[in-house]
Design a protein around this nucleic acid. Structure first.
Lengths: 215, 215
DNA sequence: AAACCAGTATATCGCTTCGATATAACGAAC
DNA sequence: GTTCGTTATATCGAAGCGATATACTGGTTT
């Protein structure tokens, strides 16, 4: 789950751990701040698996919006030289991570693997990365979530009506039902939009798309 | 977090693990089904801490809606005798847990401890158990959650407007903002209701209530 | 009646995640 | 020039999750 998020962020460019943590919350809209006790083991895991590798930190200016640092070896060397000559002591500096080709493969695998992580957070994450999916895969993702939410809504509605709950518990489940039906409407709107774009494939075709997984 | 939920359920009567798992979802409205790998270690933990103890399984009829099994020793014996004579269903290896006095103390502690578990799930759980809180403690709980949600909403709104997000990520954060503002309105309604009942303490006073924690 | 399958129930294993904490470097305030 | 806040990496123990193993029970098939 977290691996997918990290790989997704790293597609945009090289990042170090602290920055990844910030963007996980901001860009991907993940609910809770991922703790370092989660993030760093995850990065180490991915590095061990060969999905990312740490590169020398280049110019600490900004987030390098143009080229995602492909083949800027001379630049890196220059940055390293400058650092060594002027500021000195690179002891424990930033570790900047870069996605490898293997990592890109892993990314598409994790993104397409709908079985892993049936969480609501997992869905939000995958939808946030929807740009990397084909129209079909996106639609399936949305439909699957729609079914899950509908099922849960039925359960919650049933529990709210039949069971003997005191006022506070009832209050909570009723609000939960409200939220769920709101989610459901939202999902239905999105599905309708995808269906429309599927029948009129005008603009966005899936370039970096994931092949429609079997089943 | 889970400990509090278990103790809360056990206040209504004795339960075995499998039943606790079902009610966690139904009554307390907890999102995901708690897995056994979570539940049984938690029960063992609570038993080791003396908060619950396993008793002989009594009548498998229903959920004992009347008295929550205080001093019903003769009832247990009768149930056991009846079981042995008529239906003969000893249903071995069913471990029924009962709350101890120590467990009741732990329950009020966990319920009042607002610091632990700043999760949205922790809030829902505590509000579901709101009956065991004083009006003041409940109001504080609601206000705290209100502030948290308001803060998060500001962050999300900011991220949605300023940052460069592609259409899918934007879609997710916008829906998140929508959900959050809905939550906020709900919390404000609840707070207003609590304030009203605080100024006109007509009906429900906190009998099993928790003392207003310091700070 | 024996064999089989599905449901109920308890328990454990390995891995991931969390929260707290330690450590270190840097820049700014004082 | 030393203290302090921010940025940053790393580790530890506890808790949670998913998969899995193990039984007992009730109903169906053969």
């Amino acid at each position: 789950m977290l691996d997918l998020a990290i790989l997704g962020l790293l597609q945009e460019g090289d990042l170090h751990g602290y920055e990844i943590r910030r963007r996980l919350r901001q860009s991907l809209g993940l609910v809770s701040n991922v703790s370092f006790g989660t993030l760093y083991p995850a990065l180490a895991r991915l590095e061990a698996a060969g999905a990312v590798r740490s590169v020398a930190p280049l110019a600490p200016t900004s987030e390098a919006p143009s080229g995602p640092a492909t083949g800027s070896l001379s630049g890196e060397l220059a940055a390293l030289r400058a650092r060594r000559s002027t500021l000195a002591r690179p002891k424990r500096s930033k570790k900047v991570y870069r996605l490898t080709d293997e990592g890109r493969v892993l990314f598409t695998e994790l993104l397409a693997d709908t079985g892993a992580g049936d969480d609501a957070r997992a869905f939000s994450l995958r939808l946030s990365l929807g740009r990397h999916l084909t129209v079909e895969a996106r639609t399936r993702l949305l439909e699957r979530q729609h079914d899950r939410v509908a099922l849960r809504l039925a359960e919650v509605t049933d529990a709210a009506s039949s069971a003997e709950l005191d006022s506070y518990a009832r209050c909570v489940v009723e609000h939960q039902a409200d939220t769920l039906s709101n989610d459901l409407a939202w999902l239905e709107r999105l599905i309708a939009a995808e269906r429309a774009s599927q029948h009129q494939p005008t603009t966005t075709s899936g370039r970096h798309a994931v092949a429609p997984a079997n089943s």
